[in-house]
Design a protein around this nucleic acid. Sequence first.
DNA 1: CTAACTCGCCTAATATGTCTAGGCAAAATA
DNA 2: TATTTTGCCTAGACATATTAGGCGAGTTAG
Lengths: 189, 189
Amino acid sequence: MARAGITPERLTRAAAELADEEGFDNLTVSAVARRLGVRDPSLYAHIRNARELKERVALLALEELADAAAAAVAGRAGRDALVAFADAYRGYALGHPGRYAAARFELDIRTVAGSAAPRHSELTRAVLRGYGLPEPDQTDAVRFLHGTFHGYVTLEAAGGFRHTPRSADDSWAWLLDTLDFALRNRPRP
Amino acid sequence: MARAGITPERLTRAAAELADEEGFDNLTVSAVARRLGVRDPSLYAHIRNARELKERVALLALEELADAAAAAVAGRAGRDALVAFADAYRGYALGHPGRYAAARFELDIRTVAGSAAPRHSELTRAVLRGYGLPEPDQTDAVRFLHGTFHGYVTLEAAGGFRHTPRSADDSWAWLLDTLDFALRNRPRP
DNA sequence: CTAACTCGCCTAATATGTCTAGGCAAAATA
DNA sequence: TATTTTGCCTAGACATATTAGGCGAGTTAG
């Protein structure tokens, strides 16, 4: 049989595209095999199981997201950095819904450590540097920002804001204003 | 064959329990059938398909969550109401992870309208009443709060905060303080 | 009180997806 | 060129989702 020339990169890319097009929940070994023009079992020479396929997409998404965030934050500080960071995050999530969902895939602790996840925390801390928060406030703020961005974007992607005429962009801008205000003026303990 | 006496309530309860125990993603028609002591096809007399099974759990979760939030907010105002509301939300999510995930299940628009989802928005607006926000700021704030609570709790449940010694409870308290401060003092447009 | 009927649950069977075992030939290497 | 590796294949076991059709327990009509 002619070889299909499957590489880890081609496989992961196909899976990521599929996730974006059909949803992360519909990402199956079968669907990837179809897209690559091979039979299902052939893929098991390249992946251990279906979970690993999803893991690959998750790791890719974490990398891409961290890269986008890093580029956004570079050369900015304070409010500018916060807004650019948040917009990069939201832009990626809306532009790549399947990959974004993958980034929330539960990885085991060892895999997380070797992933781009730690870069996300570092980048968030870099953004917060402009606000001069001492510990443990900075850790709290990292969690606050992560949670807020993730939650807002998830609800928006799920269509939760379509029932009201107010635009999701405008609410997002208001949210960032409020966040910036709070971080700058919140009374120290 | 002896009848198993399946009612919509028993079925939904079994599905909800299964979701909490095994995860919403692992909620299957087969698993529910096993738990109820019947064969898979027997359930199709009670549900249309697997999607409807999940929908049932989603609707139950939205109801329970709205009930808990309503009870928490009753008789409170301002900061007290905000904290009680948020704690009810977080408590439910951590106590019933499967049901909570179900509450994020994408329902079609007609189903959402008949669900407890609108109550959630109303309750959030009730909480915000104490902060005297005009429109469209109030709508923005509703989205902000929903997103923040949902995101924080999702990340916490996924174990995203276990890598740092700082307790998730303390970060939560900090978050609520900050939110309250921002809503009270944010400059009007 | 029996006859008819409804409807809850069953078996059988198909489709799709995950994954293992074993085979063959193309590609890499000796 | 001979050998080894290995990418891809077929066959097949097992799980889940779902449809079709049957049978008998509970309910209702005569």
